[in-house]
Design a protein around this nucleic acid. Structure first.
Lengths: 157, 157
DNA sequence: GTATATAGTTAGATTAATCTAACATTTTTA
DNA sequence: TAAAAATGTTAGATTAATCTAACTATATAC
């Protein structure tokens, strides 16, 4: 089956995200979520329905099929991970990280995705907690130079 | 002036990149570079000409105006930096880094770009050369676990 | 239970990016 | 220098994503 377009990915992801906090899903909510008008949503939902990703009772509620849900989760997962990487590793602000993730999620390769995920894990599982080098990077990014070296004594004995 | 579309950015960047290794630029080369047909190029060049970014002698050569060149460099710079970050920091393969950079260059924010650039610099200006933690990350990405700790003696005296 | 408000749909237009096929110009070459 | 080859352009079609305006269905409120 052909890949979804960026736009269709947005729609299916929106439905998924809305479903996380909302019992029922309506055309209007999707429109609001994505900042588009309702006819655009109807159009998109029609296409997603044809592909068996969404079920839509006319004039009624929407839901994702299993396949649709799976796909939506994949897209959203990329979003979350790119967001986390930009925000937590690179230190990009929340709002910009969100925007960037929104766009990049449609384009980034599996391989790069994998590396970002591993990078986050690498940071999160650092034996000494939040790693020194990342602190130093944040300092560097902010001040344009490394922090003054702290000639700390060896911990080993 | 309105922002260029992704596609227009591709065209202007292509012209710039071709100009780096080629004395003269023709419609056909751009088509080949971007994997599109010549009428698409003619179309795009028309639009870029209207915006004062390109000069095109009918049936002849093309060149970027100063403004066009500046813009093209900006786009290409993003490309280069994203490529470098993916490749050198995240350890993504050359070819995939290139493809990802190609897409992401159109979407990434100034802020994230800035952080990536700083990250690369942070790595490149590490006082001890290629940083230990990045070696460790590469090991981690490859093997799924950190390298066995080397209880090295303190260097300080 | 009818009128009004809200939500959803359809029809038709617009913009952007692409293509193919036909045509025009320029360059090459014999 | 005339024919052939290569390159560039134009016209017209297609696909995708969006919109507005008009219309339809459902829900709500007296």
């Amino acid at each position: 089956m052909k890949k979804l377009t960026q736009s269709m990915e947005d729609y299916i992801e929106a439905i998924y995200v809305i479903s996380l906090t909302s019992k029922v899903i309506r055309v209007k909510e999707i429109a609001k979520f994505l900042n588009v008008k309702t006819p655009s949503v109807v159009d998109a939902v029609g296409k997603l329905t044809q592909r068996g990703l969404v079920i839509h009772e006319k004039y009624g509620y929407l839901e994702l099929t299993d396949k649709g849900c799976e796909l939506a989760k994949e897209v959203n997962d990329k979003h979350e991970k790119v967001y986390k990487f930009f925000n937590e590793v690179l230190g990009v602000s929340d709002s910009i990280s969100k925007k960037d993730a929104c766009n990049i999620e449609h384009y980034i390769s599996k391989e790069a995705m994998d590396r970002m995920i591993k990078f986050i894990k690498f940071v999160d599982t650092c034996p000494e907690g939040y790693p020194e080098w990342l602190k130093n990077f944040n300092y560097y990014a902010k001040h344009g130079k490394r922090p003054a070296v702290c000639h700390k004594r060896s911990v080993s004995k």
